[in-house]
Design a protein around this nucleic acid. Structure first.
Length: 558
RNA sequence: GCGCCUGUAGCUCAGCUGGAUAGAGCAGCGGACUUCUAAUCCGCAGGCCGCAGGUUCGAAUCCUGCCAGGCGCGCCA
């Protein structure tokens, strides 16, 4: 609709040039926007104001000229007006809005789907938690963000893959094994030393018990036992992580193991490539990469004095491999504490000829947990953290996902468990779900009353005419636009706000009927009722589609 | 010291590429259920948009400098 208005506007300007009522100048950047205040039209443009300086005339004067020559093809516009400092406000005819409602009803689950991404292949890597402990709140935020982003991208025509990178090759896995083994020993000997930097969480004892039931650790040498504990502990944790994510509604397409990266010789190949490009050198007994030549603060070590590779080395290899797999773009979702890694990662990729904007990194700021008005400090090493499991047990998947997505990822999130737990009006997720359930209930009631949905929407939709009804349609019309914008800016949180706004418009509309019977959805007039049923069915469709993209259920009853 | 993020109502936060009177939820006060779900709605109150400059016809939004908070600046993972 906006595009149509833009074409109309451009045609109008051309005519003004032809007729010499405006000086022929290049068009400056202008916008067509949806004003906050409905009194300012369905759409408004600032074009006259942007033209003022090149035309050397007042904005309002230019606005009048444009308005007077407006090409109103097919009666698209109901009205237009010059307003404020030099805006032109446009009002579109009801018929056009009815058409949009009609298309929502036809498209159903597909309303909002688009080809905006034109099949671009995107790899989104997120969560990627070390398999040394259960997922916690912070991972939950990353999971909700990443998964919803993927759902959105996919709906908007991108070819998306979800990937979880498993850090299963480093020393922390060994420390996990030591921690498990130590807990095992402590069952019979409480004095048995616990490793420095060990993992203190209660789950470690659980792992020790499970593992010792499966194999007899006592018969092995300590070294072998620790090795077994590492291997099995990692597998058990990974299994648990998968289950948690599944419960949270997140399915990954790929689980990429760092171990595989090493054993398949990919890291070696990467080093060969880097060496071939003259990017490596040795100093102080270590192997370095010249990332400083590509925008990093300083050069970085790839291989330590002790012969071990750094994480950075396998990370480079991993990302180059992603690129080789043919993805047009990669999106990584990292914790905010990793932000210092962005320049070096980008530098390394650039040094291998991968364009700068191929990888985008989204940082998620920390989640602070509040309970009974107190902040709960979280530390994985110390074992004081709230797991995703515990969170889901307490508040459920829907509320958790919604709350994680109500804040922009780059601002810190205060997660108040008590607030989210409340199953009442305090919780915005229920507000949106309630609107959906309410509509379902109305449709059931209508069916009971024998009011059927008409096959054809033509003509009947003309009965949809109240201000509140037209406002609902206009909000629904924004849905596809919001979705493509979210994909462009990678800001899924905007969807929760949009849905809350739509639900609010609906609830407001519904309540008109509590005062005035003629304003109820099911009225004494059959055709009017049918028209309104079509309208609310459209609202239900948009809410359902939105909730689906958020990975949240749309209940029929509440 | 350097870098990234944040600073908007009592609290938690939105505010789309600069636009017309800065929004929502919670908390507070006052109202609306014999009739489609009151997990709802309506009204009132509440704001030097951290501070100071600058760019612009126009700035919460862009630029610069300060102030405050969070997080990083390893041959740790």
């Amino acid at each position: 609709m906006k595009d149509r208005l833009d074409r109309l506007l451009k045609a109008t300007i051309d005519e003004c040039f032809e007729k010499n009522v405006l000086k022929r100048t290049p068009l400056p950047d202008y916008v067509i926007e949806i004003p906050n205040n409905p009194a300012h039209g369905h759409f408004a443009t600032n074009l006259p104001m942007t033209l003022a300086s090149v035309q050397h005339r007042s904005p309002r004067e230019i606005a009048s000229v444009i308005r007077d020559h407006l090409k109103n093809e097919d009666g698209f516009l109901e009205n237009s007006e010059v307003a404020g400092p030099g805006f032109i406000n446009f009002f579109v005819t009801a018929r056009e809005w009815h058409r949009i409602l009609s298309s929502i009803i036809d498209l159903k689950d597909d309303y909002g789907r688009s080809g905006a991404g034109s099949g671009q292949r995107v790899l989104v890597e997120f969560v990627s938690a070390n398999p040394t402990g259960p997922l916690h709140l912070g991972h939950g935020r990353g999971a909700a963000l990443g998964d919803t982003l993927c759902r959105l991208l996919s709906f908007c025509g991108y070819d998306v893959a979800r990937e979880f990178y498993i850090n299963d090759a480093g020393r922390q896995i060994h420390i996990l094994g030591e921690s498990i083994f130590s807990r095992f020993k402590q069952i019979n000997n409480p004095e048995y030393p616990f490793p420095k930097n060990g993992y203190h969480g209660d789950y470690v004892l659980g792992l020790a018990k499970t593992i010792s039931e499966q194999i007899d650790l006592e018969t092995l040498s300590d070294g072998d036992a620790v090795h077994e504990c590492s291997k099995m502990g990692k597998e058990l944790m990974l299994k648990e992580i998968r289950q948690d994510l599944k419960r949270f509604g997140v399915d990954f397409d790929f689980w990429y193991s760092e171990n595989d990266l090493l054993s398949s010789g990919l890291l070696k190949n990467t080093l060969e490539t880097l060496k071939g490009n003259g990017l490596l050198y040795e100093q102080d007994g270590a192997l370095w990469i010249r990332t400083a030549d590509f925008g990093d603060d300083k050069n970085r070590v790839l291989k330590k004095m002790d012969g071990q590779f750094t994480y950075f080395a396998s990370d480079i290899s991993y990302h180059l491999e992603k690129h080789d797999r043919g993805f047009d773009r990669a999106i990584d979702i990292w914790g905010a504490d990793h932000h210092g890694y962005i320049p070096r990662m980008k530098a390394a990729l650039l040094s291998c000829g991968v364009p700068k904007d191929w990888l985008s990194v989204m940082l998620i700021q920390f989640v602070k947990l509040w309970r009974r008005g107190q902040e709960i400090r979280m530390s994985k090493r110390a074992g004081t953290f709230v797991t995703l499991q515990e969170l889901l047990d307490e508040v459920g998947v829907d509320a958790a996902r919604f709350v994680f997505l109500t804040k922009s990822h780059d601002s810190q999130l205060d997660f108040d468990i008590d607030l989210v737990k409340k199953q009442d009006s305090d919780n915005p997720v229920y507000y949106v779900q309630y609107a959906h359930a309410r509509i379902c209930s109305i449709l059931r009631k209508a069916a009971e009353a024998g009011i059927t949905m008409p096959d054809k929407t033509d003509g009947i939709l003309d009965l949809v005419s109240l201000d509140e009804e037209m406002a609902l349609i206009r909000t629904m019309a924004q849905f596809p636009i919001i979705l493509t914008e979210i994909c462009k800016t990678t800001e899924p949180h905007r969807l929760t706000y949009y849905l809350t706004e739509l639900a609010s418009s609906f609830h407001k509309y519904f309540n008109l009927g509590t005062k005035i019977p003629e304003n109820r959805i099911i009225t004494s007039k059959k055709d009017l009722s049918q028209a309104r049923l079509l309208l609310v069915a459209g609202v239900r469709t948009v809410i359902a589609n939105g909730l689906r993209l958020l990975g949240i259920s749309a209940p029929q009853k509440m």
